[in-house]
Every structure is written in C-alpha cells, then in structure tokens.
Simulated scan of single mutants.
Amino acid sequence: MTKGALRAGEQLGLANAKIAQVLHLDAQAISAMDAGVEHLRGDTPNGQRAITLIKIHQALATNVGLDAEAAKRWIASHNTALAGTPASLMQTEEGMKAVLAYLQSMEAPQGA
C-alpha cells in the first residue's frame, strides 16, 4: 500500500511535499517510505488516506484512461462542481471523499 500510494501521488503530479500534506505526514516520513524504511498500515488514519488516494488515482484513470498528462491537469485545475482544485481539496478528509465521490459518479453509466 505504501508504494502504491506514493506511485499514485506521483502519477497525479503531486510532489512529495503535497503527498505528505494529503497523507497528513511530514516530508521525512515520505522520504523514509520512498526508501522502504517506513510503511503505512491500513488500520491507521494515514493508511486510510493512502487507500483513498489510490482509489482517486484509479477512478481518475478510469475517466481519462492512461493519459498521465490529462490526469495531472485535472488534479491541478479548478473544478466548478467541486468548487476548487482537487489537489487542494485532497488535503482534508472531506475533500478527499468529495473528489473520490465526484470521480466515481463520472464512472457510472449515464441513463442507467
């Protein structure tokens, strides 16, 4: 899960400092995770945030395909429906849930 969260953040165009903010960790913890010294646990608040980050990445990939640049643009751009940029909103738990819910709603078949 640790490497998956770091990879998801990187593929979304988030620098390590932004990943640290999203996961509510400090930069040293992210560096230690990147080096394989520390690991996230799914039964912790930080681990739960990492799982949500991975889900956001997966949901966005479903919507934009494998276009990494499109995913990065989406994360960094203002979204009227969300009333902010997803990257900024993801710094709070409520914001992460809102971003994930929005992306999942976009995956749902229309008219079903």
Results as ranks from 00 to 15, higher is better:
16 N>L: 07
75 I>H: 06
26 D>P: 04
71 A>G: 14
33 M>E: 03
58 Q>M: 04
57 H>W: 09
18 K>P: 05
71 A>T: 05
57 H>K: 06
25 L>E: 02
67 D>I: 08
77 S>W: 06
40 L>R: 03
108 A>G: 10
21 Q>S: 15
100 L>Y: 02
32 A>W: 00
72 K>S: 10
22 V>R: 01
34 D>W: 07
94 E>V: 13
88 S>M: 12
49 R>W: 04
45 P>Y: 02
83 A>F: 15
29 A>E: 05
13 G>D: 08
72 K>L: 08
28 Q>N: 14
77 S>Y: 02
76 A>F: 07
73 R>S: 15
36 G>N: 03
112 A>F: 13
52 T>M: 09
7 R>M: 11
15 A>G: 10
67 D>T: 08
11 Q>W: 03
74 W>L: 08
69 E>G: 13
51 I>Y: 11
63 N>R: 14
14 L>H: 03
42 G>R: 10
46 N>F: 00
45 P>H: 06
30 I>S: 01
62 T>C: 08
8 A>P: 10
106 M>P: 04
79 N>H: 08
13 G>M: 04
81 A>G: 07
43 D>G: 00
2 T>S: 07
33 M>S: 05
99 V>L: 01
33 M>R: 03
15 A>Q: 11
76 A>Y: 08
4 G>F: 00
41 R>L: 09
88 S>H: 13
62 T>N: 12
42 G>S: 13
106 M>W: 01
109 P>M: 12
85 T>Q: 12
106 M>H: 07
44 T>Q: 05
32 A>T: 02
50 A>N: 01
104 Q>L: 07
100 L>W: 01
61 A>W: 11
110 Q>I: 15
75 I>W: 06
89 L>W: 09
60 L>G: 01
35 A>T: 04
105 S>T: 10
112 A>Y: 13
29 A>H: 02
1 M>E: 12
84 G>C: 05
80 T>Q: 13
37 V>E: 13
42 G>M: 09
80 T>S: 13
112 A>D: 12
99 V>A: 04
54 I>R: 00
25 L>C: 04
40 L>F: 06
87 A>M: 09
34 D>V: 08
80 T>G: 09
1 M>L: 13
99 V>R: 01
72 K>W: 09
63 N>E: 14
